[in-house]
Structures are given as structure tokens and as C-alpha cells.
Design a protein around this nucleic acid. Structure first.
Lengths: 354, 354
DNA sequence: GATATTTCCGTTACCGTGCACGGAATTTTT
DNA sequence: AAAAATTCCGTGCACGGTAACGGAAATATC
């Protein structure tokens, strides 16, 4: 039998006794709030180092009256969309961290308008949060915001997209975009070769700069160049808000290129092309998309979509909040700041038990 | 901005004030330790119901001196084996739950000897644990053990394999074996047909009854019957402790059936056939195995193995311990007792970020 | 009705930390 | 050297719950 027992911990009273000081002084040292002579400070610190003091979390939380708030900045989600999944992660994490006196405040912005993001940033700063989670869509504006956070000593964590900042983020949670495109290509071809493949893309006039789908496409193309050089990669642009036009575009495409049997989309909207394909099924078609949206999963279950690569935004956000909470409560930093999360492969046969 | 705020909670002092009793009496009611008149009991209960009292966890844990121990029964792991992964989950969970005053005690037994399991069971009972996690390999012996646990009011959770017990388990964490075999077949064929496939099996004289590989094989065979009826399923038995004999067996097999291009193993030991296949590579071979053992992952990364279906025993155990801890500390039961966990598909391109 | 039992309940001392308050010790000023 | 200003430090209560202890109230015994 192996026992993983609990080691006896030292208390601030013990430290007070050992140093001949009072617990008030020990407390001042522990929290760096001054009013302590150098001599006393050193005495306390040496005992702490020697005995390895760890504060009692319960006593600390019990005694502390104030709650701390973590602000979360996400693109405003449409129902059932990618960011809607992230929100469910916020809710879950809020429950989990409540026990540590952590509250959350969700701020959403228009992911295609930089001014909307700027607005939200100032509102976040006004709310004086203890920590911030950011899904950054605008490089420059985020840089400015993050600099301000650094100046105010407010820790922040990135999700979805990383942004190297001078002051340094506490952590990042996302998936490696380039590699996900590479993986996508591998899963699409399954070791075979293809003559033609189709990438369905969404057109929009966008102010937004950091777009993971660009990197995914690059990874996809590199895989093709290396493993299937004879393949023609075709692109088709659709309008996400006009289902009829989408159907027509697809119809026209397949009239022109009837031999295409492989389709991918690098954003989370594979479900947009599903209605057409269900109405006019093409045997032997292999379709891969991204992310575990409800609509995507339905298409996966009924066989229209072959596979989904899920990055699980809900988990990313949850981890981000957990990390921030741990830092605020235990002042513990994550071992590795940059955490590339697992890309989960979903098929109709393993999606149910998720 | 959406706020997920913290609701104000009522304390036992509030209850004492509202009922005109003392907090000692309130405490007696809350813990059902008698010495309270019916009249007072009702007064307290009605206030609790009305105001929705929830105890303050920190205060409770701070005041409580005693620690509780969770016993964990697993097959004795060989280094780098399936059960070794589970152990890492035990270690992780122990860290996580330590903060709640939970200790763990690991008991291992010989998974092929029922008497070894019986021995361990009695030792577990002697240790008087507050809760038990069991990976059951022996149907009857487990039934007996579990009955005894029920009689002593000790909650227990199954991992890996479920066993319907009369008294009822608190929870179960595992993957659906039959479905994993079905999924495996789908991933092996990738929509194509095959003339022949090979199942490599391990022979052993076993006392053990509940073997998930049997169910996996059934799922695999059913998939084949439904989607690829013309396929011949061949079996090859190897000796896990004799690498040379394994190589010879494989060599003989491929001499007799040189056209086979699909191999699966339903246990976690796909790595056993890797050395042979690396020495005598066969182009176009597709190989699928189970579980994220170090050796398997190496073979996945260098391309010998095409895919692994991972059930992540470390997560199963971790969840099991967490559930038990939550029950002991918060007296909260899981929403659903039976939790089929996600079957994770690993390829060389998504295994790194795990 | 006095005494012995039993039932019931209030008091109190913790658990370990946070933090405000007031005062002692030390340094600066005059 | 005395007074004023700082610096430094100890005391004590609060946080919410646990549980032992002893005594008051209610009931039983003779």
C-alpha cells in the first residue's frame, strides 16, 4: 500500500513563536505590507525558508472579506456559435472558482470592429478587475490594452490567439493553428491521394487582423505540397448570412468540378454547407470542419460531415480562469505560460460520450 | 457586461439568532447528532429550508481536525503500462484533493489472481477508508467486497469496468468498450473496404473475467459484418513476454498472408508488434491500437502506428477520486452515476500537444 | 416531595489568518 | 535633553463552524 499522506504544516503562530515576534508582524512580512524592520523581516523569512511555510487556505479565505473579480473579454457570440461555447466555459469556471472568492464579469465586443474592442477595454479598466482573460482579435489595440494592464499590475491570460506582449502574459491557452491545418489535411486524405480538394471560405470585409484560419490554410497547403503535390486546391467563397446564395454557389461549383470529393472549412461554420449536401448528396464525399458547435455535431452524427477537429473553446476559457484564480488566490504561476491544447478528433462514433 | 456574482450566504449564527437558540444546538441539528428536542429541531429546520442554508466550507474544514482517506484498488502496474498511467492520475488527484483534507492510499493486486484481489480487499477494509475507488477485474470477488462496503456505509466508485451492484455505486468512469471496437473498425477502414484484416491477440491463462477487449472485438466484428461483410478477420496470438517468438509469429503470418494491410490490437500493447514492423516495414500498412502508453506514443510519432484510441485511465481515476472527495466533503452526489468518457483519437499530428 | 436520571441546551475554547488600532521603541527635531 | 515625528510591533477581534463540557430543565424513581 502506498500512502499519499498530508504533511503537517507550520502556521504563522509557529513562526511567531520561533522568531519571538508576534503574528501581526509575521503577517506583515508575508503580505509585504511594510512597517517591519529589516532585522525582523530577515528573521521571519529565514524561518519560512527553513520550515517551508504554506498558508492555510481555509483560514485565509475565511478571514478575507473581499471578493476578487476576473474580467473576461470575448467576441459577442451568436447563439450556437463558437464563442457561445466559450461562454459555457465561463459559466462552468465561475462555479468552480466561486469557492475561492472569485467572481467573473463577462465583457463582449464586436469582433469586426476595433472601436467596439477599445470601448470594452476602457470599461474593463474602470471596473478595476483583479485579473483579465482576453480573446484578442485586434493586434494593436490589444497591445495598448495589455500595456495598461501591465502598468496597473493586473495579470492577464490570452485564449484562442496569443499575442507576444512586452510585459508578459501570465498564460495562453489555444491550439496551434498551423498544425491544425496540417492535421486536417492528413485526416482528409487518409493516406490516399486526391486530384482536387475544395476549401470553402467565408468572405467578409474585416477590420480584424489575427485570424487563425489563415494559418490553418497555410498548414493545409504545406501538407499538400509535401504529400500530395499533384493536387489542385480550389477555393469557394460563400456568404454566411445568405443560405440561398450559398446553395447556388455550391451548385455552380459542383457543376464545374463534379469530381471533387474532399471538402474542408477552416472556420467553425462547416454547418453552412450541410443543407445543400443533404439535399443533393454526393456519394464518397469526405468533409472535415472545425469545432464542436451543435449544428456541426448534428451533421457529424447523421454522417454528412466526416470529422470535426475540436479545439474546445469552453476548455480553453475554463483553464484560463482557473490559472488566473490560482495566481490570485495561491499566488502560483503556471509551469508553462504557453499551453497548446489538444486537438480533439471527433467522428460520429466517439462524439456521443463527450 | 454580465456578472456572475457571489450570493450572500446565511450562517449558523444567523440561524441561532432567528430561532432564539444557540449555535451549539443548530450544529447538533445540522449534523444529526441528537440531544435536540423535536420542537427545537423543527424550528431550526424550517429556517434552514426557508433561507437555504449552506455551510461555509472553509470554516468547516478549518475547524475539523481529522483527515479522511480514500482507498484505491488497482492492478499492480508494470512500468510504462496501462495501469501505470492510472497511478499518475492518483498522484495528480491526491494533490488536488489534499486541500480538502483528503488523503489517498493505493492498494495494488495481481490482476490475474483472484486470491490476490481478495487479500487486498480485506486489507482495505481493515484500513477503514472513508471511500473506495475500484478497478474490478473479478466479478464475484468484487460483488462480495462491494456488499461489505455497502454494509459499512462506505461509498465506492468504479473505474475502467462497471459492475452493477445491488447497493449501488456512487459513480463509474470508463469508456464504452463495445463502441470503442466499432469506432476502431471505422478508423481502420476509413470508408474503404478491405479483403483481410488482422487482430493481434495476447494469450494468457487467465482467472480474470471482465475483459474489455472481448467487447471491443465484438464491436469491431459487428462493424465489419455491417459495413464490410466480405472481409476476412484473421487472428494471431502472441506471447507478451517473448519478443523473439512474437517476431517469428508475425513473420510466419505475413509469409502466409502477405496481402494484409490492416492490423488492430484491442489491448494496450500495440507496441509489442512495433519492433518487427520497424525492421520489416510493409508499405501502406495501417495499424490501430489502444491507449496512450509511452511506447505506443513513440510508435505513433515515428509513423509505425497510424492511430491510437486513448481512454486516458489517468483521467478516469482522477475523476473518480474527485467525485468521491466531493461526496465526502460537500456530500454532493454526481448528476449521472455512469459516466462514459470520451474516446480520444490520437495521430502523429495531434499527439504532441497532449 | 426529595433525589436521581435523563434529556436538552448554552457556553466556550479552539482552528489559522486578516487587519485595525493603539502604544512602545526608535529616530529626528528643536 | 526634552518634545515631536516616525518607525515598528503586539494585542485583540473577526471570520463560520466544531465539539467538549457542564449545567439547567424535564422526567423518572422511591
Amino acid at each position: 500500500m502506498t500512502k499519499f499522506a498530508i504533511v503537517e504544516k507550520i502556521t504563522i503562530n509557529d513562526i511567531a513563536r520561533l522568531t519571538g515576534l508576534s503574528k501581526g508582524t509575521v503577517d506583515r512580512v508575508l503580505h509585504n505590507r511594510g512597517e517591519v524592520s529589516k532585522k525582523s523581516y530577515e528573521k521571519v523569512m529565514s524561518v519560512i525558508r527553513e520550515k517551508g511555510y504554506e498558508p492555510n487556505l481555509y483560514a485565509s479565505l475565511l478571514a478575507r472579506t473581499s471578493h476578487r473579480t476576473i474580467a473576461i473579454l470575448l467576441p459577442k457570440p451568436l447563439p450556437g456559435s463558437y464563442w457561445d461555447l466559450a461562454i459555457s466555459g465561463v459559466e462552468k469556471a465561475t462555479e468552480d472558482e466561486r469557492q475561492f472568492g472569485i467572481e467573473t464579469a463577462l465583457f463582449t465586443y464586436d469582433e469586426f470592429r476595433a472601436d467596439s474592442f477599445r470601448d470594452v477595454c476602457t470599461r474593463v479598466l474602470e471596473s478595476k478587475p483583479s485579473g483579465v482573460v482576453i480573446a484578442p482579435m485586434f493586434q494593436y489595440e490589444t497591445q495598448v490594452f495589455v500595456q495598461e494592464l501591465g502598468a496597473r499590475q493586473i495579470p492577464y491570460v490570452f485564449v484562442d490567439t496569443k499575442l507576444d506582449s512586452p510585459d508578459g502574459h501570465l498564460a495562453f491557452f489555444g491550439i496551434p493553428s498551423y498544425k491544425s491545418g496540417y492535421l486536417c489535411a492528413d485526416m482528409l486524405l487518409q493516406g490516399d491521394k486526391a486530384k482536387e480538394v475544395l476549401i470553402v471560405r467565408i468572405m467578409r470585409d474585416k477590420e480584424r487582423q489575427s485570424d487563425p484560419t489563415v494559418l490553418r490554410r497555410a498548414g493545409f497547403q504545406d501538407y499538400m505540397r509535401e504529400n500530395n503535390p499533384g493536387c489542385t486546391i480550389r477555393s469557394l467563397f460563400i456568404n454566411p448570412t445568405d443560405a440561398e446564395a450559398t446553395d447556388e454557389a455550391l451548385s455552380a461549383f459542383f457543376e464545374e468540378f463534379p469530381k471533387v470529393r474532399h471538402i474542408v472549412m477552416f472556420n467553425s461554420r462547416i454547418h453552412l454547407i450541410v443543407p445543400y449536401l443533404e439535399r443533393y448528396p454526393i456519394p464518397g464525399m469526405r468533409i472535415i470542419g472545425f469545432d464542436n458547435l451543435e449544428a456541426n455535431i448534428r451533421a457529424l452524427k447523421n454522417g454528412t460531415v466526416s470529422m470535426l477537429i475540436a479545439q474546445h473553446p469552453e476548455k480553453q476559457v475554463q483553464e484560463a480562469i482557473r490559472t488566473l484564480s490560482e495566481f490570485l488566490v495561491f499566488q502560483r504561476k503556471p509551469e508553462t505560460p504557453d499551453n497548446h491544447m489538444h486537438m480533439d478528433l471527433l467522428t460520429r462514433y466517439n462524439v456521443e460520450d463527450y
